[in-house]
Amino acid sequence: MKSLAELAAIREKMKDKVVLREGSGEIRVVVGMATCGIAAGARPVLNAFVEGVSNAGLAEKVTVSQTGCIGVCQYEPVVEIFEADKEKVTYIKMTPEKAAEVIEKHLKGGKVISEYTISNAIS
């Protein structure tokens, strides 16, 4: 049974970590969560990123956030990846499976998966 005591334990554990987390988020993963995205399956994609980033031990480096309509509804679910000094990467028609691959190859390995990007679809 989930208890409030577990929450108190999380607080204890985070005491030292809170400071560390500030200034983090060198990489930002942004999931489009407007009507178009939600209808196309953005919710499980977002959850796959939230869960996958944490399980891969990338939480200090990567933040996962939500945004509205990115403007390319036909390609939803759309995920944008922002990294300082690098060009934005836009992944389209995402699935939880593709999300796992992006975490492994792109966020962890630093290699863009070109075949899932919008530039691949329109070129």
Partner: peptide, 8 residues
């Protein structure tokens, strides 16, 4: 939005 809190 802490991951452990969300999981809880």
């Amino acid at each position: 939005d802490n991951y452990e809190v969300i999981k809880w």
